[in-house]
């Protein structure tokens, strides 16, 4: 079997007395969507923070594309092709939609210690940024300020920025968060399209979406992964049902 693109072993993170990541080990194979589900406060975002380098784990190791990345910060991991999106939309509101994506292209296109030439006029950057916007159906908004986009469009822009990085692995933290029914529909369609070309670790609350999208699912409860399996098996797993559907507590 090929080496997984992401391998996590013995990851731990505590906030005070609370073990938010409690000995988490799992791996993500190349291709397709691996979903992480779990109730509110299970530690999903904290896990994404540690995988992306936003937050330093207390213990454990993270290997990405055959490299130990545990000690690297967010920018380094991003340059290696580990792209993350944010549960709470994080774009540049005062930049145009195109420039939001172009900044991500710029980050992987040679040095940015260039002081003379106007960046907005660099065709290579703009073309690749435009391609990323088109991938998520946001091409028509390229000239608008990101701050005036609708919530759903901002979620699309988050995706486009990540795609503009040409990632080897996408870490998506609740890409559907806060989206209305129509927006959700559209975003699921986009993710289905991306699934063919990218490896995605998807944290998501929307169960219907997860079962429609995921090839594999890990279930996180109180900081622990209690199961990792194919969607059908996860749906049938009694421990998962008990923990996640809020029936009797499972020790």
């Amino acid at each position: 079997m090929a080496e997984p693109i992401l391998a996590v072993a013995g990851l731990r993170k505590r906030f005070g007395g609370l073990a938010v990541t409690d000995d988490v080990s799992f791996s993500v194979a190349e291709g397709g969507i691996h979903a992480v589900i779990g109730p509110n406060g299970a530690g999903k975002t904290t896990l994404i923070h540690q995988l992306s380098g936003t937050l330093r784990p207390d213990a454990g190791s993270i290997r990405f594309a055959g490299r130990e990345v545990t000690g690297m910060g967010l920018p380094r991991r991003a340059r290696l092709g580990l792209a993350r999106s944010f549960q709470i939309t994080s774009v540049l509101p005062g930049f145009s939609v195109l420039e939001n994506a172009a900044l991500a292209v710029q980050a992987r296109s040679g040095s940015s210690f260039r002081f003379m030439r106007p960046a907005a006029g660099e065709r290579a950057l703009n073309e690749q940024a435009m391609a990323a916007l088109d991938q998520v159906g946001l091409g028509a908004r390229a000239g608008m300020m990101a701050g005036v986009l609708s919530h759903g469009e901002k979620r699309q822009l988050e995706l486009a920025i990540a795609l503009a990085m040409r990632p080897r692995l996408l870490l998506l933290d609740e890409p559907l968060a806060g989206a209305g029914p129509e927006e959700t529909e559209r975003l699921i369609g986009i993710l289905l399209g991306l699934k063919r070309a990218y490896t995605i670790l998807l944290v998501e609350h929307d169960m219907q979406a997860v079962f429609a999208l995921a090839d594999r699912i890990s279930v996180l409860v109180y900081g622990r992964i209690i199961a990792t399996d194919a969607p059908a098996a996860i749906r049938a797993d009694p421990a998962v049902r008990a923990a996640y559907l809020g029936e009797d507590e499972v020790a």
Partner: peptide, 13 residues
């Protein structure tokens, strides 16, 4: 200036 986290997330320090 606008959003340092966003800038780091695309690969800049």
């Amino acid at each position: 200036r606008e959003n340092p986290l966003r800038v780091q997330a695309v690969g800049f320090s």
